[in-house]
Write a protein that binds this DNA or RNA. Structure first.
Lengths: 190, 190
DNA sequence: CGTTAACATGAAGAATGGTTCCGTTTGACG
DNA sequence: CGTCAAACGGAACCATTCTTCATGTTAACG
């Protein structure tokens, strides 16, 4: 019994796009604590409209987090098709991902394991895990990455990374490039 | 012109102790977002009493943070008097400190660079920096630690560590021991 | 066009949690 | 003891921020 439903109105879809874009910008700038009212203002709509498209603020965060993980997956998958030494492919991937994450406060928080984002495993997360596993297997087969390293280690390292990058943005004297340099070195075979 | 002031009442000092102990326990268990009312209840006093001794919640956090840094400084200073290989002295210190921090949610947050704690440099922080520098110089002189490593790197690593440990406690699949293992490896000379 | 369901709005509601305030109690001192 | 300033208690206050809802608007379709 499929209930006959009118198609979504054109202005509604447009507004949804505007909300997503505004939220993306607001979160990138102020982190996940950016206020719904601010997002609505940026989008040029009322708060009610935000809530029409996303039942809660948390769902909005989840949606953007899923999008972010999709981007990371794309970065990792791209490396799979590139030529180069196994270690370089892996390291370059981490580096590209980190650079993208560090430029966005909310993304840092999401990588840091913020509750709103960590909940459901998005397809992007699965793809990311898959691609990273392949990259790491390659490096391990070449004997340049410690044998006991797993994707879980990468998650752990990137969790710490997200927070370091966020702290750096917040003004603490800190350096995420240096953090990565040391962590990546710790993953190499001696 | 020193204003004649009555000495602090005995019950007031006792209550202060109780507040500090209660706050310590509440923060260790629930993190810095533990509520003032909960702290007061644990201490067996009213919220007003908490505010008599600490003008704001943030000051209370700062006081406990300073205490924590004092403990870390003691750990590092103790290692200075112990016999052993330079690298082991350094690594053992990090390990001891990390173990202490990981057992306390608020401590993890403080290490992670929580605003309330990062503000003023407490004497404990200075002592900690001093002792760590000595330990690191020893390891570098022995040629077992990368020459470019600085105390600032340790701060960065421990910032990430605090967050990883907190995330692990919050239920994320993560492993701070593994994190440390990799980071310490990254600090060694190849 | 007219009708209607979908959509938009933003002020009001609800929940949270730090801080204040004043009536009451209590320790210290003469 | 009697006095008094210090200390206490905790309900009330206030600020913040997510969420709802009653009212007004608009795109889609016949």
């Amino acid at each position: 019994m499929s209930i006959a439903r009118r198609p979504q109105r054109a202005d509604a879809r447009r507004n949804r796009e505007k909300v997503v874009a505004a939220a993306s910008a607001a979160f990138a700038e102020s982190g996940l604590e950016a206020q719904v009212e601010d997002i609505a203002r940026r989008a040029g709509v009322g708060v009610g409209t935000v809530y029409r498209h996303f039942p809660t603020k948390e769902k909005l965060v989840e949606a953007l987090a899923a999008e972010h993980f999709g981007k990371l997956a794309a970065i990792a998958e791209a490396a799979l098709d590139e030529p180069g030494e196994p270690w370089d492919l892996f390291a370059t991937t981490i580096w590209r991902a980190a650079t993208a994450v560090a430029a966005d406060v909310a993304w840092c928080e999401i990588m840091g394991g913020h509750p709103s984002a960590a909940r459901a495993a998005s397809p992007g997360q699965l793809r990311l895990t898959q691609a990273m596993t392949t990259l790491m297997n390659g490096a391990q087969a070449a004997g340049v990455m410690r044998e006991d390293a797993t994707v879980s280690d990468i998650r752990t390292i990137m969790c710490g990374f997200g927070h370091v990058a966020a702290a750096q943005r917040a003004g603490n004297e800190m350096n995420w490039e240096r953090y990565l340099e040391i962590a990546l070195d710790g993953l190499r075979t001696r």
